[in-house]
């Protein structure tokens, strides 16, 4: 198909609607947030327009820095766990008969319909001392007595991985289905065991897909807000929790906005860095 460059202003009309949507639902709110992040807090009411950088300065304390670091670390861990589990799983899934694949995908889609709240409380029950899985372990003789597995970091991680896993699989699935199966067979005829061939051939051939999926899960996990509160201790709370706390309970909009802007900037920087590293390696 030949593509012609748009000539007159009228040729741009199809862009009008998406452009408008982007402005109304992204540019305006985000600009407002940036503006608010420089406003001055008014303890008695809300905030007054101003230009102060106190909000950002306050952010650079050890406490908030720590929370930011923890949030990023958690999101990275969730992304890595999800891809590490989902990639081999999806790969094996694509080797199954069509009908089996459909059943699994439908099942995964139905998990997506669960809200974060339901997932959180389900896992908190599962990890509890009274009704949790440890009771099962006791029953089959693996443990002496049931214990509570929460609130712990592990519980937060498990819940968040569970929540993000269906997305990860659904994103990886199309790429893995399209992968040429003879690549793997070729590696096997050349003397690679199936596992080795998987790591030598499938993983590198899909590197861009894997990087894109990691970024997607990372961003997804960064916004997590409920699960860390349900399944973790306060020190496991993410920046999103603090932002909500500041914005809603402390009525400190400017500070909340500053944190949000900072979070967005840091995420963008990390994503950009990942892409840059990926591009460099590709060029080799």
């Amino acid at each position: 198909m030949r593509r012609e460059a748009p000539k007159s202003l009228a040729d741009y009309t199809p862009l009008l609607f998406p452009g408008l949507m982007l402005v109304v639902f992204f540019v305006v709110p985000f600009s407002t947030m940036i503006a608010v992040s420089f406003f001055k807090r008014n303890p008695s009411g809300f905030y007054t327009p101003d230009f102060v950088i106190d909000n950002y300065a306050r952010f650079l304390t050890a406490f908030f820095g720590g929370v930011l670091g923890f949030s990023l670390l958690l999101a990275v861990l969730v992304a890595v766990c999800c891809v590490a589990i989902a990639f081999p799983f999806t790969y094996l899934l694509t080797k199954r008969p069509r009908r089996v694949q459909t059943l699994w995908l439908v099942g995964l889609l139905s998990v997506l319909s669960l809200s974060e709240v339901i997932i959180g409380f389900a896992w908190s029950t599962l990890f509890s001392q009274t009704a949790g899985i440890t009771n099962l372990f006791v029953a089959i003789g693996l443990m002496d007595k049931p214990v509570a597995l929460l609130p712990t970091f592990g519980a937060v991680l498990a819940g968040m991985v569970y929540q993000a896993l269906p997305y990860t699989i659904l994103v990886l699935y199309p790429a893995l289905v399209r992968l040429d199966p003879t690549l793997l067979e070729a590696a096997r005829t050349l003397g690679a065991s199936p596992v080795r061939a998987f790591f030598n051939v499938v993983t590198p051939a899909l590197r861009n897909t894997i990087v894109a999926t990691l970024i997607m899960v990372f961003v997804f996990a960064l916004g997590s807000y409920l699960l860390p509160q349900i399944l973790g201790r306060p020190r496991h709370w993410t920046l999103s929790v603090l932002i909500t706390d500041q914005a809603i309970y402390q009525s400190n909009m400017p500070f909340a906005a500053a944190m949000a802007v900072f979070l967005v900037l840091i995420s963008l920087a990390l994503v950009g860095l990942t892409l840059l590293v990926g591009r460099k390696e590709n060029a080799l």
Binding site: D180, T182, L183, E185, A186, A187, V201, A205
Partner: peptide, 8 residues
């Protein structure tokens, strides 16, 4: 192989 299956 027919598709050659060279590692890209």
């Amino acid at each position: 192989f027919q598709s050659l299956a060279l590692f890209p």
